[in-house]
Computed example of a mutant assay.
Amino acid sequence: MKRKLIIDGNAVYEIDEECMLKKRLSQDSEKKHQQTQDNQNRSSQADS
């Protein structure tokens, strides 16, 4: 598992890169799904 430490002054953050990648891919998938729905809605409204 890849992890990255970020040191910012007195604060230390540990970033799990695999988790961040999964989250980003999930968000991208949701965006594409939403865009597809929006396009379908516009298409059906234009046909009416």
Results as ranks from 00 to 15, higher is better:
Asp16Cys: 01
Leu5Asn: 07
Ser43His: 11
Glu18Gly: 09
Leu5Ala: 03
Glu30Arg: 12
Gln45Met: 11
Tyr13Val: 05
Ser29Ala: 13
Arg24Asp: 07
Ser26His: 10
Val12His: 03
Lys2Arg: 10
Ile6Lys: 07
Lys4Val: 15
Asp47Glu: 08
Lys4Ser: 08
Ser29Ile: 07
Ala46Ile: 02
Asp38Tyr: 09
Arg24Lys: 09
Ile7Phe: 02
Met20Asn: 11
Ser26Trp: 01
Leu25Gln: 13
Glu30Ile: 06
Ser29Glu: 14
Glu14Asn: 06
Lys4Asp: 05
Val12Ile: 13
Asp8Thr: 06
Asp16Lys: 14
Met1Arg: 12
Leu21Tyr: 03
Ile6Arg: 07
Ser44Leu: 06
Thr36His: 12
Lys4Phe: 13
Gln27Asn: 08
Gln27Thr: 05
Lys2Gln: 11
Gln35Ala: 09
Asp38Met: 08
Gln37His: 05
Ile7Leu: 04
Glu18Pro: 00
Gly9Cys: 01
Gln40Leu: 15
Glu18Met: 00
His33Ile: 07
Asp47Ala: 12
Cys19Trp: 11
Asp47Met: 08
Lys23Ala: 11
Gln40Ala: 15
Lys23Gln: 12
Gln34Thr: 02
Asp16Met: 01
Gln37Ala: 10
Lys4Cys: 06
Gln27Phe: 02
His33Gly: 03
Ile7Arg: 15
Met20Ser: 11
Lys23Thr: 10
Ser26Asn: 10
Lys31Leu: 14
Ile7His: 06
Asn41His: 06
Asp16Gln: 07
Ser44Gln: 10
Gln27Cys: 04
His33Pro: 02
Arg42Pro: 01
Arg3Trp: 06
Ser43Val: 02
Lys4Leu: 15
Gly9Glu: 03
Gln45Gly: 03
Asn39Tyr: 07
Glu18Lys: 09
Gln37Glu: 15
Met20Pro: 00
Asp8Leu: 14
Ser26Lys: 12
Ile15Tyr: 02
Ser26Ile: 00
Glu18Leu: 09
Lys2Ala: 13
Leu21Asn: 05
Asp16Val: 04
Ile6Ser: 03
Asp8Pro: 02
Lys31Glu: 14
Gln34Ala: 13
